[in-house]
Design a protein around this nucleic acid. Structure first.
Length: 264
DNA sequence: TTCCATGTTCCGCA
DNA sequence: TTGCGGAACATGGA
């Protein structure tokens, strides 16, 4: 499920349930979920630590794990297509790939059916973000309309492709990009450089409103308004906004839905 | 059996 | 340099 609003919601879930408890044991149930790090190293560095804080950049979640004032590392989570978290007592969920056992008997599982996600450790999230070349987070206060416009300036690619590219802006995925362009009336294949200033401002404002709105609803898409495209992702159905026809196509390698009438 | 899936990376080519 | 198409990764669900 994970685009930015889902990852933000997972981060809040993590913070609500799993901070300030000593990690008694680390179970790596499927090593393929780990990044560069070896299973033994991963477990050794976290065992005995306590999770003390959560931060997010785009679709990446970082959780500070502290063992002593001098010794800390960051747990890095990327949720791929099917990643999720589960805090529980008793039996682990079916696709639990990594499980943290806390003193007191509760567990936190990183679940991921398809294994496209990553669990890793990093020393410094800022360095990671820099080295990975991630663009700004769309909810960052510093991302003003002016700075947003600068990100798109001079680029020839399709607006959808640019908004999906994490090196330009980090956190948007297929669903929310389609939704943004639907709500702003822009065709997903329009060249970004051909958008008017007004359209760019509208895209910026819509992204931020949409993400905040979705986070406020705990990323439960069913709770978003019925008029949103997200409930009408199907070839040939009627556009709830203008009565046009919803079309399906491929842009940037991803299934794309748009209204053939009001998105130009 | 076939098609599709909210992500990312890598390769070849223009 | 920029951008795009296609394939690959792993595993279901309809």
């Amino acid at each position: 499920m994970p685009e930015l609003p889902e990852v933000e919601t997972y981060g809040r879930y993590f913070a609500r349930h799993a901070l300030h408890q000593r990690i008694a044991r680390v179970q790596v149930r499927d090593e393929r979920i780990l990044g560069e790090i070896r299973k033994e190293t991963f477990a050794r560095k976290l065992k005995g630590s306590t999770f003390t804080g959560v931060r997010r950049h785009g679709k990446h979640l970082f959780v500070l794990a502290t063992r002593s004032p001098q010794l800390a590392t960051w747990l890095h989570l990327h949720f791929g297509m099917t990643g999720d978290l589960a805090y529980y007592r008793g039996e682990p969920p079916r696709f639990a790939r990594v499980v943290f056992d806390f003193d007191g008997g509760a567990h936190l599982a990183f679940e991921d059916m398809r294994l496209f996600g990553v669990v890793d450790l990093v020393d410094d999230p800022d360095a990671f973000i820099r080295e990975r070349g991630l663009g700004p987070d769309p909810l960052d206060r510093a991302l003003t309309p002016k700075r947003f416009a600068a990100l798109l300036q001079g680029r020839r690619g399709a607006i959808k492709s640019l908004l999906m590219t994490q090196a330009i802006i980090a956190g948007l995925g297929n669903l929310y990009v389609d939704e943004t362009l639907y709500q702003t009336g822009i065709h997903p294949r329009r060249a970004a450089g051909r958008l008017s200033d007004e359209e760019i401002r509208a895209v910026h404002a819509t992204i931020r409103r949409l993400l905040r709105e979705t986070i406020a609803r705990h990323a439960r898409e069913a709770e978003l308004p019925r008029r949103y495209l997200i409930h009408h992702r199907e070839e040939g159905v009627r556009c709830p906004r203008c009565g046009g026809t919803i079309r399906r196509t491929i842009v940037f390698g991803r299934t794309t839905y748009f209204c053939a009438k009001h998105q130009r």
